[in-house]
Every structure is written in C-alpha cells, then in structure tokens.
Amino acid sequence: MVDYTPYEMIAYTGSRLLEDKKTVFVGTGLPMIATLHAQRTLAPNIILLFEAGSLAPILELGLPISVGDTRAGIKSCIIKGLCMAFELSQRGFIDYGFIGGAEIDHYGNVNATMIGEDYSHPIVRFPGSGGAGHMAVNCDRVIITMPLERRRFRKKIHFVTNIGYGDGSLSYRRHAGVLGSGPWMVVTDRAVFGFDEATKKMTLLEVAPGYTVNDVLERMEFKPMIPNEGVKTMPEPTAEDIKILREIDLEGLFLKRKIVK
C-alpha cells in the first residue's frame, strides 16, 4: 500500500489524463507538477505552452517557480512573449488547457478571482485570472484541478472568472465567441468528474478507493449526475509515481498542503 497525500492524488490523476504528443497550455502550481510527471512517465513527448511565451520546453532543471522563469523556458523550440502564446491558442493549436481554481459550479464555470459580493471590496482576493480565462475559452479541452471541498463545489460561485458551459444553454459558448469545446474533466483528490453531452452538467465518473459515492456527494453543495452504469474506481499512484512527484516538488510546496474538512 502506497502512502500519498490528497494533492499527490490530484497531480497523479491529472497527469494520467494527458496524452503523449498533444499540446497543453499549463498554469502554475498543480497543473505544472502534473504535466512534469506526465513528461517523465507516459507522455514523454507532451508539448507544453506557457503564457509567458515558451513553447515545448523540456523541464530538466526541475519545477519552475513561475510560468515566466528560466526553468519554464529551457530547451524550448521557440520563445517569444505573451502575444505569441495567446496567438497559438487563439488559432486553435492547443489541445488541453490545464487550470486550477477556487470554486466551481455545476456547469464547470470556475472562480479564481474573489470571495464576496462586491468586486471593489472582496472578502478574499485570489491571484486569478492570469492566463486562465484565455485558456478556458481557447484550448480545446479544459482540465480543472482542485481539492474536493464543500466550500469549492457550489451551486452559485461568487465570480465567474473562466466560463465553462455558462448557464447550460446550448449556444452559450458560441455566443461568447469561444473556440474550445469546454470543460472536459474535473480532477479532485477523491473524485473525477466529466460533463454530460446533452445537459452540460458535471457528472461523477470515478471515486477514489476507500470512498463511496456518498462520501463524494457530502463534499459538494450541488448533486452531480451519476451515470446509469455506475462509477469506476480511480487508479492509485504507484511507489514510482510518488517518488517522481516528490522529486518534482522537493519542498512539498504544493503537494504537502492539507485539505479543509
């Protein structure tokens, strides 16, 4: 039995969703760790794009501190600036967008900006949106990572930073002038969600070993759809996967954080 933290489960699960030789637009934190893990295991030729302007870097010096630092750029095929990175995604070259967030609702709309009612006087102000808003509308499939907590999975989020399927109406994304197909998966420490084709609502797909569907539902304010054929069990990371993850995040800045009950 391998011992792992909740955030290590999120990073591992995010990593196994990425396909080799595809392009992924990566945000800071967990998405970076997950993509680095994928590059070292099942997807060695995965192509990263960072919003600061580096395309296809090989992250051999370790985990970058920010999307714009030296480690996020070495051995790239091309380095220019933000405008080039955003041109590539606006032209439709990017397969996956990999973002985090503070809150998410039934239709995959994400809040990375604030908690509160008044934008000029928030109760809490997060560092969002950064490049995430752009990623959410232009990358083909968006993977969202966050821990499964009731305060995050809400019926109504405080602020829509990155649009998912909006209000669920079929033409919402088209009216918004959006290119990508939308939220694809939501990866948490004890559940993985997809989105229903017809209704665009979040659907429970996998549950972590040792937990039941009810354990998942009590950590959400809204009830996700449950497929008729039932849910699968999330694969667990192996000892080798944990070793790689802990080598990537040597100080445990991201992977050792605790989940709020």
């Binding site: 949106s129 752009h134 829509v160 994304r173």
Partner: peptide, 8 residues
C-alpha cells in the same frame, strides 16, 4: 477571444 460570458 476572451472574457465574454464571464464576470470579467
């Protein structure tokens, strides 16, 4: 191509 449809 950004922002439309969000609170931003």
């Amino acid at each position: 191509r950004d922002h439309v449809g969000s609170s931003m």
